[in-house]
Design a protein around this nucleic acid. Sequence first.
DNA 1: CCAACAGTCAAGCAACCGCTTTAGTGTTTA
DNA 2: TAAACACTAAAGCGGTTGCTTGACTGTTGG
Lengths: 113, 113
Amino acid sequence: MLEQSTPPQDPLDRVFAALSDPARRGMVERLSVGPASATELAADYTMTLSAVVQHLKVLELSGLVTSHKTGRVRTFSVEPEALGPAQRWIDDRKRAWHRDLDRLEDLLRQQSP
Amino acid sequence: MLEQSTPPQDPLDRVFAALSDPARRGMVERLSVGPASATELAADYTMTLSAVVQHLKVLELSGLVTSHKTGRVRTFSVEPEALGPAQRWIDDRKRAWHRDLDRLEDLLRQQSP
DNA sequence: CCAACAGTCAAGCAACCGCTTTAGTGTTTA
DNA sequence: TAAACACTAAAGCGGTTGCTTGACTGTTGG
């Protein structure tokens, strides 16, 4: 019985959740080209700057981006290490599946050689 | 100005959202070992069968799993193709970032050879 | 045949999300 | 120094999510 209630929350939860919003993915895409300020990022969207900043906060909490403030402008950059666990999880699934598939092929080969 | 409001919803949205829940990830993990029925899957969790089935519905809607019913039991299996787009998106980000990093290195090499 | 079984459906509910609006704080620039 | 700028913080709101409960439909083993 796997107990997983809702403790401090798995980082993986936050990364996948952050990526589930197209606006947030857009911001990460924009930022993987190079750093940008909140206002610069906001220029690409119809929503309020406020909303954009809230999205950026989610991204930062997930570890996907970092930010530092100089003067009155806060600059955001991607933190690509944060994608590692997500990528690894997906790879593991694919690997597990292929293992399963190979086993099935072996079985079929045994049945009808 | 990228317009992305909320149309029929990008498949990528649904895949990432589906993976953002630890229970759902657990079910996919279990299923990538081999197919299982709803009740079998439910045995690993403290929540109701009803809740488990709802999670499985989300997974199925995202395309990550398929199911077919024989008699009174519905059997679920993974659909690993569905992970492709998510994996590709992540890979693209990593690639874009490395390109950026390499460019920075070139620049630094130019500055202080 | 009928009781246990495997799942389905719908209602209800608390918590959370994505967004806007409003009202700030500190920073620059003309 | 005053107006424009780049955020920041908080409240509020409608919609969605993750559950539970309860009632039901079809299937199957004894």
